[in-house]
Amino acid sequence: MTVSGIDRLHSQLSKLEDMFPGFLTEIVEGSIVMNPVRPFHGKTIQRLWSIVEGQLPEGWALVSDVAFPFDDANEFCPDLAVIPAEAEAENRSAYPADLIELVAEVVSPESVRRDYEMKPRWYASRGIANYLVLDPLKGHVVTMWNPGPDGYRGRDTISYGPELAIDSSLGKLSIPTARLPVDPKARS
């Protein structure tokens, strides 16, 4: 995709976000998708950010809800992505998807299919080594690794509670999952 194509897509999304505050907007398989943002969604992102940020090696940085165009029909705004600090310092609204080293999505009722089925194929196809799906609706995290052309070959589901150790190209990351919020409806 050309830079002008990326700029055009991002311009379209920015207009929609301005018209519908409180919604996250992405382009997924050619469709514009809008999800309402919920408190547990934001709280999960904030906690994960604070946990991961101090563990990143020098030269890496976190970004949240910025655009990563994959092609003309797919532009994702990951809840959390690790990219080179040099790129993050450019303070852009969109970056090439190939910069992502690790990505995390937080599930909302409207994003279940996209986060568990659609996005793993796209993230894996770009060689993103680790994909985390944090699910406050079910109280678990799904880790995916070993990317291939059709998706991730490795997958584990861990209930919130124990410390999660992720072996990544960034080094070993530890995430104390007991600190992550769980939707009260998931407990009933």
Score class of each variant (00 low, 15 high):
residue 183 D to V: 06
residue 15 K to D: 13
residue 136 P to K: 01
residue 109 P to I: 03
residue 167 D to P: 00
residue 126 R to C: 08
residue 148 G to L: 10
residue 39 P to W: 03
residue 175 I to N: 00
residue 139 G to K: 04
residue 134 L to A: 14
residue 129 A to Y: 00
residue 85 A to Y: 05
residue 55 Q to Y: 09
residue 164 L to T: 05
residue 168 S to C: 10
residue 87 A to Q: 13
residue 121 R to I: 13
residue 73 A to N: 15
residue 79 D to M: 07
residue 87 A to P: 07
residue 172 K to E: 15
residue 148 G to I: 06
residue 2 T to D: 15
residue 5 G to Q: 15
residue 30 G to R: 05
residue 111 S to V: 00
residue 59 G to Q: 12
residue 40 F to P: 08
residue 146 N to C: 12
residue 127 G to Y: 11
residue 184 P to H: 09
residue 162 P to R: 02
residue 124 A to N: 08
residue 18 D to E: 15
residue 31 S to T: 11
residue 148 G to M: 05
residue 117 E to I: 15
residue 22 G to I: 00
residue 172 K to H: 08
residue 38 R to M: 09
residue 142 V to M: 12
residue 139 G to N: 09
residue 174 S to A: 14
residue 78 P to W: 00
residue 85 A to S: 14
residue 87 A to Y: 02
residue 9 L to V: 11
residue 122 W to D: 04
residue 3 V to L: 13
residue 52 V to F: 03
residue 123 Y to E: 04
residue 170 L to E: 04
residue 53 E to S: 13
residue 52 V to K: 00
residue 188 S to K: 14
residue 102 L to E: 02
residue 186 A to L: 05
residue 129 A to W: 03
residue 139 G to L: 07
residue 25 T to S: 13
residue 73 A to H: 12
residue 3 V to T: 14
residue 178 A to P: 04
residue 42 G to F: 02
residue 74 N to Q: 06
residue 138 K to L: 15
residue 130 N to M: 08
residue 177 T to E: 01
residue 103 V to C: 09
residue 114 R to M: 08
residue 22 G to S: 11
residue 77 C to L: 11
residue 40 F to H: 13
residue 76 F to K: 06
residue 119 K to T: 03
residue 142 V to G: 06
residue 39 P to R: 01
residue 46 Q to P: 04
residue 132 L to C: 08
residue 111 S to T: 15
residue 162 P to A: 01
residue 47 R to G: 07
residue 186 A to S: 14
residue 65 D to K: 14
residue 143 T to W: 02
residue 8 R to V: 11
residue 120 P to V: 04
residue 148 G to T: 11
residue 116 Y to M: 09
residue 20 F to K: 13
residue 94 A to V: 01
residue 128 I to Q: 01
residue 107 V to H: 00
residue 67 A to Q: 06
residue 43 K to C: 05
residue 77 C to A: 13
residue 107 V to C: 00
residue 138 K to H: 13
residue 36 P to D: 00
residue 106 V to K: 02
residue 161 G to D: 10
residue 67 A to I: 02
